[in-house]
Design a protein around this nucleic acid. Structure first.
Length: 265
DNA sequence: AACACGACCTGGTAGC
DNA sequence: TGCTACCAGGTCGTGT
C-alpha cells in the first residue's frame, strides 16, 4: 500500500524527527535483505533523506546510500528506544544516543539494500519521471505511453513510465480525470492526457497532505475511510460526484475501482 | 518489445 | 471457539 504519498510522508517525518543521526549498528531481524552484508555495513552519519518513486533513501556520509523498497506493507520511522522492536521489524538501524530507525514490514515484500551513492542513479535508472517534479508536463506523460497500447491503469502503475503510483492512487487519479481504467493509452486524446496529468498531480498532492494530517502514530497509516478515496474500496457505494454505484473489476490481476457514471469507456 | 499473468509472502478477517 | 479460505498488492519472472 505505500505508494508515493506514503513514502514521501515517511521521508518528511525522518527529516523532521531524525536529522543528523548516526547509525552505529544494523540489526537484520529477517533476511529479506538482498545485500545483507552491505546493509550491515551501512554505518555512520546520515547526511540526508530522500525519496525516489516508492523508495526511501538514506544517504550516509560514508558514500553509501541505504535504499528501502517499501513493498506492500513497509514502513520506515524513528523510534526513541532501541532494543524493543515493534512487532514486524525486519531491519533496525541503531542510532548513537539510543534511538533507532525501524523498518517494519508485515508481509516482507519490501527490501533493504546498500548502494554506493555514486551508483545510485544507475540503480534507479529504470524509474520513469517523478510526477510531482515541477518540470513534469502533460506532454511527458503522453510521451511515456508512446508506442504502447495497454490499458491506462496498468500503464499508470508501471514504474518505468511514471514513478510512484500504485493501485490506490492510480484508480483515484483516473476517477479525477474521468477516464475509464480500461481505456487503451493509444486511444486517449490531448484533452484526456492533460486532464490525467493534472489529476495525477492533484491526487498525489492531496494524498500527501491527507497523510500528514491524519497519520496519528509513526507506523499508523490512515484506515481506508480516512484515505478520502473517491472510488478505491468503495464498490457498491454511491459515487460522491454523480451518485452512480462504484464498481469493482479485476484488471491485470488487481482490483480496480471506478465510477461507471463519471468514467465512461 | 510489449503485454498479461502468476508467484512470492504473511497477517487479518470473513465465513463456517 | 477454532479452523480454513481468501484477500490485500508491489515487484519480478515467465510465457506468448
Amino acid at each position: 500500500m505505500p505508494e508515493l504519498p506514503e513514502a514521501e510522508y515517511m521521508v518528511r517525518r525522518l527529516r523532521e524527527a531524525a536529522p543528523g543521526v548516526r547509525i552505529t549498528k544494523v540489526r537484520v531481524l529477517r533476511e529479506t535483505v538482498a545485500e545483507g552484508a552491505l546493509v550491515k555495513g551501512a554505518l555512520g552519519g546520515v547526511t540526508s533523506y530522500a525519496r525516489r518513486a516508492k523508495n526511501v533513501l538514506i544517504h550516509l556520509e560514508t558514500g553509501w546510500t541505504v535504499r528501502i523498497q517499501l513493498g506492500m506493507t513497509g514502513h520506515v520511522y524513528p523510534v526513541g528506544q532501541a532494543g524493543e522492536w515493534p512487532r514486524f521489524t525486519r531491519v533496525a538501524f541503531v542510532l548513537e544516543g539510543g534511538g533507532a530507525l525501524v523498518f517494519e514490514d508485515a508481509r516482507t515484500f519490501g527490501t533493504v539494500s546498500a548502494v554506493r551513492t555514486e551508483h545510485l542513479a544507475e540503480v534507479l535508472a529504470e524509474y520513469g519521471p517523478e510526477p510531482l517534479d515541477a518540470g513534469f508536463r502533460w506532454q511527458d506523460l503522453r510521451a511515456a505511453a508512446w508506442g504502447l497500447r495497454q490499458e491506462v491503469k496498468p500503464f499508470l502503475m508501471d514504474q518505468r513510465r511514471v514513478a510512484g503510483l500504485g493501485n490506490i492512487w492510480a484508480a483515484e487519479a483516473l476517477f479525477g480525470a474521468r477516464i475509464h481504467p480500461a481505456r487503451r493509452v493509444d486511444s486517449l486524446g490531448e484533452g484526456e492526457w492533460k486532464a490525467l496529468h493534472r489529476s495525477v498531480r492533484a491526487t498525489l498532492r492531496r494524498a500527501i497532505e491527507n497523510t500528514m494530517k491524519v497519520t496519528a502514530g509513526p507506523e499508523e497509516f490512515p484506515e481506508a475511510d480516512l484515505l478520502l478515496t473517491r472510488v478505491y474500496g468503495r464498490a457498491g457505494q454511491a459515487c460522491r460526484r454523480c451518485g452512480s454505484v462504484v464498481e469493482r473489476v479485476v484488471q491485470a490481476a488487481r482490483a480496480t475501482f471506478y465510477c461507471p457514471g463519471c468514467q465512461e469507456r
